[in-house]
């Protein structure tokens, strides 16, 4: 924990009225745990669905320390590239079911874990093919807004090689977007800052 800083800053408060526009972000703060996470949140797919695996990893700060109070969310298509359009996120999926959305808070070791399946590649809005990937958001105290990234898979080498996003990122950094296969699933760590900082995306301007 960083030392408290003296109150050297005083912000001016004037009568300027609010302008029209998008509501700004604010941090999720430290106290979301009793409100946002829920028991079935990490179950994107039922655990007995064929092909179900664990997607897990840790969230790290600039000094490589795990972040124990972050929240991770994912959203993805199913194995055929279909996005769930039946309403509802709070009920657990059927044992062989699929919900598409997941939410998991990190534990004391900065660790999150989802049960899910590998999506089919879904195209861009313009119809260009993309490699299979999962959209991910990370929220935490100390982050005034979320970070957004994508989780690709290391056993999709040929699809990854022609993926528009992966091939637009410098080679030294694109590996931060690719989950590593291991026994039982894939590992995907998120590094908020530093030499091996995860590639983060701007999706607000689409």
């Amino acid at each position: 924990m960083t030392e408290p800083i003296p109150p050297t800053f005083v912000y001016e408060v004037t009568d300027v009225p609010a302008s029209e526009g998008v509501t700004p972000w604010q941090t999720v703060g430290p106290y979301f745990h009793y409100a946002l996470p829920y028991d079935s949140g990490p179950q994107v797919a039922g655990s007995s669905r064929p092909g179900a695996f664990t997607l897990h990893g840790c969230v790290y700060d600039a000094e490589g320390r795990p972040i124990p109070d972050s929240l991770v969310e994912i959203w993805q298509a199913d194995e055929s590239g279909r996005f769930v359009d039946e309403p509802g996120i709070f009920e657990a999926p059927a044992p062989d079911g699929f919900r598409g959305f997941g939410r998991c808070d990190t534990d004391a070791d900065g660790h999150y874990a989802f049960t899910t399946v590998k999506p089919a590649g879904v195209p861009t809005e313009n119809g260009a093919e993309q490699a299979p990937h999962i959209a991910m958001s990370v929220f935490a105290r100390g982050m005034l807004r979320r970070v957004v990234t994508r989780v690709y898979f290391d056993d999709e080498a040929s699809a990854n090689a022609s993926d528009p996003l992966l091939s637009s990122v410098e080679a030294s950094r694109s590996a931060t977007l690719v989950a590593a296969s291991e026994d039982g699933g894939y590992r995907f760590d998120v590094r908020l800052q530093g030499a091996d900082e995860t590639v983060f995306l701007d999706v607000a301007a689409h």
């Binding site: 600039a62 990937h133 100390g142 900082e197 995860t198 590639v199 701007d202 689409h206």
Partner: peptide, 25 residues
């Protein structure tokens, strides 16, 4: 606490893909 938790590199704009243009209902 933003000091150690803020990305330092420029954000990348992905192609507009259906994973980001859809969401749970």
């Amino acid at each position: 606490s933003t000091v150690l938790r803020s990305p330092s590199k420029a954000l990348v704009m992905p192609p507009a893909g259906l994973s980001e243009l859809t969401g749970p209902t």
